[in-house]
Design a protein around this nucleic acid. Sequence first.
RNA 1: GCGCCCGUAGCUCAGCUGGAUAGAGCAUCGGCCUUCUAAGCCGAGGGUCCCAGGUUCGAGUCCUGGCGGGCGUACCA
Length: 562
Amino acid sequence: MTAERIAAALREAAAGLGAPGADVQLERPKDPSHGDLASNLALALASRLRRAPREIAADLKGRLDGLAGIDRIEVAGPGFLNFFLELRAVGEALGRILAERSDYGRSREGEGRRIMVEFVSANPTGPLHLGHGRQAALGDALASLLEWSGWSVHREFYFNDAGRQTELLAESVLARYRQLLGHEDPVPKGGYQGEYVAEIARALLERDGLRYEDDAGGAELEAIRRFAIEAMQETQKRYLAAFGVRFDEYFAETALYREGRVRATLQALDEAGVVYERDGATWLRTATFGDQKDRVMLKSDGSATYFLPDVAYHVGKWERGFRDVINVQGADHHSTVDRVRAGLQALGIPEGYPEYLLHQMVTVVRGDEEVRFSKRSGSYTTLGELIEEVGVDVARYFFLIRRPEAHLVFDLELALDQSDKNPVYKVKYAHARLCRLSRIARRRGWDGMDGPDAPEADASLLSAPSERELTKRLADFPATLGRATKARAPHILCDYLERTAGVVNSWYQAGHPSRDPEASALVEDEPTRRARLTLAVAARIVLANGLQVLGIEAPARMTRGS
RNA sequence: GCGCCCGUAGCUCAGCUGGAUAGAGCAUCGGCCUUCUAAGCCGAGGGUCCCAGGUUCGAGUCCUGGCGGGCGUACCA
């Protein structure tokens, strides 16, 4: 590729000027008058070479003579080198896109190594809410990005099925169950009030009949607890499936106890000399490893806090062979980061393990009005209700549209809009328009662009500014995916897709028959038509692949609403 | 009090290793449909990048200190 050749030539030229091993990065100038590619190498080398940047740039330029595919090189501004490529070189990406098709954008960066992405990890004590929605979309998109970058990804969901909260759930279910039988049991203090608890109680009654009616004391609470957790998990899994998210493994906290891993972790920490007793409780010296203060592992009543099994769980991840782990969590859990890492470090696991991706909270608005999370009608309490109203694709996209560390405002009014104002639809429409071009071409007997044996198009015929711009954008797709993956930031891909869709729409519109038939992809001149249809197919592939990464459908046609 | 995150156009937000004149969508205003679906396109206005210092040839981006907002800071989960 031309860009790689230029970078290599620049490195060599820099070495020739006395600066070997320079880190050369080419960038896409925003302004087309700054060329197709630009390098700030001369600026970066100025202090090292103790020379004026523009002077260095001129020397570099002198050493780059005769590079194929380059029309001209300019020294500009404070010392930039701007490269203007021949159209053929700009268009070389098109051939690659047509050849790689649905694989265009994949890389081998991860070299097949295993990586775990843990996300959602909701407690089995209630339905999934909107925060879980953001996490589901984010974790799944991140996992998908990693797969596209050549990692072997394991998607995992951890659930706390052992703590006090699950007992409270069971007690709440029992109260509701007895209410169904005409008793006046109140839901326990701090218990779960939601309607879903009553539903579980009804299901329990249906399955087991009157078995627990006289069990106000709770002798069979364990059976109820298991039933409730299972029911809750079924519901969660159903919503996640509807949301298009699938996990390789659901990991239960109780498994840690059953296998003795909690006790073993406690013992190992004790042997490491980082455990002490105070006020009847057992503490871990997490402050020694960067935590703000020491933490309790065993309460004075002998039961464990969440912290201890959390550490045991992550020791398990390490022992299962996962050297790369990303935990996707809400920012309200950020205090666990330091303490879990501290516990792991005390056991000799490297600092900074595991990696965390913390995302900020979600607020929902309808126009100017904030939607409160309450049980009153018209408010959203669960992910399921949201999906039902706006659809899976819109929900997924909206959850991904912002940087994880930025607060997310979910606008229902915009989400329900089906015009191009809605960014998801903008991308889908662009994709559908490109499909339509190919359909019409086929209908007119101009076939052959879509097959695997499509003849090479002449990219030098793509001379309009919008064609050049679109071609360059398409060439940047693999690098954009790479950047999004490394930054753990799917929104970078959203941003790319929206901009690309904008360029597509603009190009499409310029060639609309009512505007300029000569600029259309469907012109009579065969070589020109072939080149433009190739561009259309390439753009379609890129949009489809991008949406695929985000788990969003790329329709070949959009049906007009009434 | 302490810790993490955020502060960019009226609103919601991008801004890649520090680089050229700070960008997009929405909203507002003005143009463009007999033609491949205009669910669109073109154009315009709109900015003390929270403030103050510092590092640098160069800071929205890095450092320090403020101010404002969110989330944490349990022998809760």
